Amino acid sequence: MALRTRAVLVHRRTELDELLDRHATRGQAEFFLRTRGRTLADVEARHEAATSARSAVAASVPSDWALAEVERTDLDRFLFAPEDVVLVVGQDGLVANVAKYLDRQLVVGVDPEPGTNLGVLVRHDVGDVAEIIGSLAAPRAGAGEGPFSAVRCDELTMVSARLDDGQELRAVNELFLGHPSHQSARYVLGADGGAERQSSSGLIVSTGTGATGWCASIAHDRGGRRLPGPTDRALAWFVREAWPSPVTGVTMTEGVLGRGGELVVTAQSDRLVVFGDGMEADRLEVSWGQEVRVGVAERRLRLL
């Protein structure tokens, strides 16, 4: 028996929600904003736009589908199913946040404020959603590898980090490996058959999707290394501010990893961390002597 399709609506709390959590009343929130040259009316307008967008997207879901909503901070506790269609209402960063928890589910990035947030990952206005879901609700073509496997979409490369104890973390933009307080991290870096002991501000390993962000600024400073595209099965990596000393080197500071290639990092600091797409709270912790292997993830983000 075919499983019931479920639409999962992903969103994040609005600025107004967070202000009211912090300041308790609208009056206090308004005073706080006024001291910073802003108005409560502007924040309320954006809140209403986001709320209306979520309601419109939810109303577009067919009656024979299930519907679930999940807030950004609960993503690591939410169980996605293979038959889910993931509707992300927010900015590019929210799509990146949810990507690491998915395994070939179809993702639709929706702009809650028409024309404001359209970008690399958020590609559709709220008005497009009904038509998109209508096309998906039509008889499915091809069961293949799972529901909606025949739907035409971009399959964006992701990066993964795996610890020697089996823990794994993925990201759609980039991974950072370094000291949790961004002090100097000490480790042995292995790549392309070579190895070097280093002390640095950490490593950035980026996909082609992330190559327009943090990675782009580093590449620019290094002379404009050519970076992979979003669907290329390749990653760019950079060591930040490597420090030369009698026991640490600076000869292995950048490169490109193809499919099957990997960086091997062995910690020589008491504590290092690995996190992806700016979500520092969701991270791997690496202790002295532990090994981290970073490469192209088997999973990809299926983005409509």
Rank of each mutant, 00 (worst) to 15 (best):
V286R: 01
L203F: 02
L175M: 01
G224A: 00
R26V: 04
L9P: 07
G255K: 02
L177S: 10
F275A: 00
W243E: 13
A29D: 10
T251N: 09
R299N: 10
V57F: 07
G278T: 01
L189M: 06
V98Y: 01
G37I: 00
E83T: 11
I132D: 06
V239Y: 00
E254D: 14
A138S: 12
G295R: 10
S149P: 11
L163D: 05
D103F: 13
D92V: 01
T253C: 12
G223V: 00
A24L: 13
E254S: 15
R222V: 08
T116L: 14
R123D: 04
G127M: 02
E280K: 15
S200M: 04
S245C: 02
G115N: 06
A96W: 04
N97T: 15
T39I: 09
V108T: 05
L169D: 00
V70Y: 06
E18M: 11
H182W: 14
L16A: 07
E44R: 10
A58T: 02
A7P: 01
G260Q: 04
D74W: 12
S63T: 14
V126S: 03
L169K: 09
I218Q: 04
R54T: 11
S184G: 15
R162Y: 09
P62T: 03
H182N: 14
H23T: 04
F32W: 15
G208H: 01
L106K: 09
V10Y: 03
P82H: 06
D128K: 10
